[in-house]
Design a protein around this nucleic acid. Structure first.
Lengths: 138, 138
DNA sequence: CTAAGTGTAACGAACACAATTACAGATTAG
DNA sequence: CTAATCTGTAATTGTGTTCGTTACACTTAG
C-alpha cells in the first residue's frame, strides 16, 4: 500500500479553504472517501504545524488557521512527515569491501539532494493556487 | 518496510565499476548484505536498461556495459521503476463535492512536478562521481 | 441532560517487500 | 561426456506499513 497521507492532507486543506467555514471530520472523510478517524489522525499533525484549528464538542470541527495564500505545500509535507523519497540501506557494511563501507554515506548525500529537490518544488505551490484551480474548473 | 531497490541497484553498479571485472551475484549480495536472488532480480531490470551484461554458466556473472561516466543515476532510477514520490488518491470522487472532483487532476500535477524534480537531480549524478568518492575515501 | 462533535487506543485486513528455497538451463574445465 | 558453477525464475514465507474500523472517554452547544 502506498502512503497517501500527503495527498489526503492537501485534499483536506483544500476542502477547508474552499468551504471557508469549519467542517467536521465526517464531511471531510466523505470528500476524501475514507474514514473520519483517518481524517482526525491527519488533522493532529496539521494542528501541530499550526495549519488548522480544531474544536471539540457539538458543532465542533476544523478550520484553517492561516489564509490559503500563506500555506505552502512544503508546510503540509513537513506536517505529515512522509517517508524519505529515497530509502538508504541501513544494514551493516561488509568490512573488507570498500564500496560496501562507503555506500551509506554516498547514498545519504544522493537521498538528501533528492529530498531537497522535492521540497523546493513544493515550496513554490500554495494552497491558494490549488484553490483557484478548483474554482476555475467546471 | 521501505523500498530499497534503487539504493541496492546503485550499490551494485558502483561495486561493478570499482571491481572493473565481472562479479557473481554471490559477491554482490555480500557487499549489499542481502540474498543473491534479490541481486539477480535487480540485475534483470538493469540488463533490460542496457546498463549491465550478465553471463550464465560456470564463471558467469555481471559486468557494466557502459563506462561509469556514461551512466547517470536517472538511468538507474528508471531501470528499477520505483514507486512514485507522491502517491495520489485513486478512489472515486464524491460527485457533489467540487474539491473532491478536482483533486485527482490537481494532485497529479503536483506529483508530476515532484517526480520531475527528483529526476533532474539524479540526472546530474554519474556513477563515475560515486566511484571517485569511494576511491577518495580511506 | 442530551446530542453531536473530537481525541485516541486497539485490532484487523490488505498489501508491499525482501528473504529464502528450489530447480531448470547454460557454460566451462577436465 | 560429466561434474561443477553460475544465472533465471517461480513459489512461498515472514515482517512491517498503511488504512479501515470499532470503541469509548471527553468536550461543548443548546
Amino acid at each position: 500500500m502506498v502512503n497517501q497521507q500527503f495527498t489526503f492532507a492537501v485534499h483536506i486543506l483544500t476542502a477547508l479553504a474552499f468551504a471557508e467555514e469549519t467542517m467536521d471530520s465526517q464531511h471531510l472523510a466523505a470528500s476524501v472517501n475514507t474514514n473520519p478517524v483517518v481524517i482526525r489522525r491527519l488533522l493532529l499533525g496539521l494542528r501541530r504545524a499550526h495549519l488548522v484549528e480544531t474544536y471539540t464538542g457539538k458543532h465542533g470541527g476544523t478550520k484553517l488557521s492561516k489564509r490559503p495564500a500563506q500555506i505552502s505545500l512544503l508546510e503540509v509535507y513537513d506536517a505529515v512527515q512522509p517517508r524519505p523519497v529515497i530509502a538508504i540501506n541501513e544494514r551493516k557494511a561488509l568490512k573488507q569491501c570498500r564500496v560496501s563501507c562507503n555506500m551509506r554515506e554516498i547514498m545519504s548525500g544522493v537521498a538528501a539532494g533528492a529530498e531537497d529537490a522535492v521540497r523546493q518544488h513544493l515550496r513554490g505551490i500554495t494552497l491558494q493556487q490549488l484553490l483557484r484551480k478548483v474554482r476555475r474548473a467546471a
